[in-house]
Each structure stands twice: as C-alpha cells, then as structure tokens.
C-alpha cells in the first residue's frame, strides 16, 4: 500500500469503488461540509473536496477535508495549479498529510478569468502533470521538487483527472498515459454523458494497456433539469452533453425532471460497469448530494466497504 487510504485499499482489493464530491461553502459555515459528509458517507468510499472550483473562492479544500474526516468521510483533497506555486502546494501537502489526509487529486484548475476574482494573477507555476509527478516523488523518492530530501515523507494516494471529451480528441489517451507515467495511482474522468465517445476513449486506453496500470473511476452525475443540461452543453468548458440527453430531459414534465436525471445517471453507471478497465464510479452531484444515495442504491453499487471509524470526532 502506498498511502493506506480506504480508497486505495478497496481498489487494490479489486472492489468496485464509489467516490463522490463535496463542494466547500463560500463562507466559514463548517456545517455545510459536515452535513454533506454525513449525507455521503454511507454511499461513497471517499469524497473529493474541491479546490476553489470554477475559480470561485471558497473554504480551503484541506480544511474541509479535515472536517469531512471528522465526520467519518474519507477526503480526496483537490489541488489545482491555479492559485499556488510549487512552494505553497508542497507546504500545504505536508500539512495535509500530517493531519491524516491520504488522498489527493491533482488538477490544472479553471482559469481565474472564469471565476469571481477575474483580476487576480493566475499562478500555473506547474501544470497538472508536473504536480502529479511532484507529489509522487515526494512520496516515493522522498524528495521535494528541488531534489532536497524529505523525511518523513507524505504518504498520499495520488489521483489525477482526464477529460475524454476535450480536444484534440486523439491526444486524450496520450495525456492519460502521461499522467500515469507521472505517477497517478487513480484517475477520475470528466462527467460522462456521451457514452459513445467515452467507449472510443476507453478502447484507446485499453489498446495502450493503461487500464492495467491505473484505477479509472468514471465520472457521472445527475442532471436536474433540461435547462441544466443545456447550460452544461453550452456553457461549461470541457463538457460534452449530446442532443439525445438534452431531448430526454426536455421530454419529461417539469416535476419529473429530477427523476429522469437520476434515471439517466443510473443507466450510464450500468453501462460503465460493464466496460473493461473501469475500476469504479465518481459521482458528482453538484449541490444535489441528496441524490447520491438513491443513485448508488438504484444502480446496485451497495454494499460499500465499511465506513471510516467516526471516532475521530468525539464532540459530535
């Protein structure tokens, strides 16, 4: 075991893993994180804690990760290259690991011009590949990025992401291979609505044998309404929402839309489960955490491996 997280354990043992996501609050309201952690902890093995997603300032992902941990939900702390340079990231990761965080997810990060402080200076000292490699080397080579010795080292299970729908399409499996070579232990993908394209990508991934070297968790999420489907299709960079999906959402009564969204999500999970090389599912409910339990149960993803001992949080 590299880090000994529950997530790593499940994947190593070949159990089909479910992860989910917690979006931190835009304030100091810790209860937001705690509530989401309690909602998700019986349905997912671990939860991503997003790092200022879409470039909007929110509570720090490491702090939220610790709160989730106290609630018995194992965190996957997201780290983007947008706001911190290699020094700040390393120092934060030392702190995170020392406090008991065992999973990180390395991302490029959305550009600040899309967020709520568009005038800020974008950092991007590293890119996501270099970040992945740096974290792997901190753990396996016991080295800081500059080559200095790091002892004792942070034991972190290293994740990265890939978007099979980004362009140029032909480069997407190459980029995945690069991330695995850089040291990714697991991969979470972008939300999948275009199954056909995802199949093509997975075929390339298998042709390259990458699925045997990394655990791939396929990203899914429930759509809430036809409007949300259109918004994702037209406005969210890197999303591929095919017309059929928009039509399906538009074709049901308003009050049935959420049900339909969950149904599409469950069907997608069932298709993904059958694909060779998929080690688990990553459910992004985007402020609709209540849906995750239903999705997991309807898709037959239970039982999950045991929850973390909640004993870390005596006062609750």
């Amino acid at each position: 075991m590299k880090a000994g997280s529950k997530l790593e354990q499940a994947l190593v043992e070949g159990r089909f893993a479910v992860t989910s996501e917690i979006g931190p609050p835009k304030s100091v309201d810790a209860e937001v994180v705690r509530r989401k952690a309690r909602l998700l902890r019986d349905h997912a093995l671990a939860a991503n804690i997003t790092d200022n997603p879409t470039g909007v300032v929110r509570m720090a992902s490491i702090a939220c990760g610790l709160m989730a941990l106290q609630e018995g939900m194992e965190p996957i702390v997201q780290v983007t290259c947008r706001d911190r340079n290699r020094m700040a990231i390393q120092s934060d990761l030392l702190g995170a690991a020392a406090m008991g965080i065992k999973n990180v997810l390395c991302l490029t990060g959305d550009h600040p011009s899309l967020g709520n402080h568009p005038q800020s200076k974008p950092v991007f000292d590293l890119d996501s590949l270099q970040l992945t490699q740096m974290v792997r080397n901190m753990r396996d080579e016991k080295q800081f990025q500059n080559g200095e010795e790091l002892n004792p080292e942070p034991r972190l299970f290293v994740g990265a992401v890939e978007n099979p729908f980004g362009h140029p399409l032909q480069f997407r499996s190459v980029r995945l291979a690069k991330k695995v070579n850089a040291g990714a232990d697991f991969i979470q993908t972008q939300l999948i609505f275009n199954i056909k394209r995802f199949r093509e990508w997975m075929q390339e991934v298998r042709d390259r044998g990458i699925h045997e070297r990394v655990y791939i968790l396929a990203g899914v999420g429930p759509i809430r309404s036809a409007g949300a489907a259109r918004f994702m299709r037209d406005r969210v960079p890197g999303m591929d929402v095919p017309e059929e999906v928009v039509q399906r959402m538009a074709g049901v009564e308003r009050n049935e839309a959420r049900k339909e969204g969950i149904k599409i999500c469950v069907e997608t999970i069932q298709e993904l489960r059958e694909m060779e090389g998929i080690a688990g599912i990553h459910i992004m409910a985007l402020e609709w955490e209540e849906a995750v339990g239903e999705i997991v149960e309807t898709a037959g993803l239970k039982p999950l491996p045991m929850r973390l001992a909640a004993s870390v949080s005596p006062e609750r």
Partner: peptide, 21 residues
Amino acid sequence: CSKSLLNGPCGGSHDGVCEIS
C-alpha cells in the same frame, strides 16, 4: 496557452479555442 501549460492541452480545449473565450 492561457495557463502556460507545458504538457499538453487542459480539459477545456474545444474546437480549437481556449476555455476562457
């Protein structure tokens, strides 16, 4: 590249244009 990436395009690259505009 809007993010000065050195290892290939980010996930936001689409139809030849950058995610920011």
